[in-house]
Design a protein around this nucleic acid. Sequence first.
RNA 1: GGACGGGUGGGUGAGUGGCUAAAACCAGCAGACUGUAAAUCUGCCGCUCCUUGCGGGCUACGGAGGUUCGAAUCCUCCCCCGUCCA
Length: 315
Amino acid sequence: MTDRRSSPAPLVAIVGPTASGKSALGVWLAEWLDGEVLVCDSTQVYREFDIGTAKLPPGERRGVPHHLMDLVEAGEVFHAGEYRRRAAAALEAVVQRGKLPIFTVGTGLYLRALLEGLSEAPERSQELRERLARRAAAGSARLHRLLARIDPAGAKRIGARDIPKMIRAIEVRLLSGKPLSALHRAGRKGLEGYRPIKIGLAPPRRALCERIDRRVEAMFERGWVEEVRGLVARGVPPSAKPFQFIGYAALREHLEAGLPLHQAAERIRAATRRYAKRQMTWFRREPGVHWLEGFGDDPRVAHAALDHIQKEVSQ
RNA sequence: GGACGGGUGGGUGAGUGGCUAAAACCAGCAGACUGUAAAUCUGCCGCUCCUUGCGGGCUACGGAGGUUCGAAUCCUCCCCCGUCCA
């Protein structure tokens, strides 16, 4: 469908660590360029987990439509493949409307899944995973030996303690009959008909850490603890995926096990810093990013981003 | 004033004569990651030198001395911190 267009449609992607101002820049650019925002974030797809996942509150969206948020319930499993499907559809719809699509990207894997596609590998199988998880409980070494037997190349690439990745590789091998590495070698089909323009936000580390601290504080002021209390009251189980997101487990512990709030807050700040670091590690390898050293809400950075996009679009 | 307990690397904290630049955890730094990715995993983490080696030198367990072939670990004095007694 998308490849029918005469010339590739521009697509803006703003990448950067958490709290670098992607959302603010997204809205600002959308206003200037007649665009719509598409969120690329593995946590914001969950409904009701709003404050801790840093969803831009509707009041701050200034009328700019935001897509790919609030897609599933807490109990549902969501993954890169699902994101790719939904994002491709949402993207197409935005372009059909004649608007510029602007992705705000916190989850690098999801952007890659959308732009470069995923290999032809089978989807998750819950039953198989449960069996493998039981096996892993007896020690990750057993899993690794199994993997080494059925997919030697995969076993070499995946750490012997990296249970989730081993499970995925074994799952693929058992379900498809082929090793994951072979499927990867076979290549993947990327998104066609679009020309990505990638903007990277890279504020100085020190300043970013300060931002993170302040944002965590602001989340508390917005009622994050109340949000978690409500989720618990509604019966969302601790095993639900979004309770793995930064802060939610700690706040649950605060509410249910008496973890002092200041300790929970400190844990949250530290976890967020580490997360920002991992995001930077990922994004540094992202090809074709035009990096800007500052926050997305800094007018100079915003104008530099705008200039760059306008130049790229007019080419 | 007296009696105990304690002062260890950025933090918590193990270590009670050599195997200890000193466990473990956290923080920090670097990295990996194609279907739960805000997840998961890996390496580094006193300073320094080179021929980068299970290499050399230096500094380090509150402070100063001492015992010993050898001390974070034992002894003496001093300085802090906590608890208790006066």
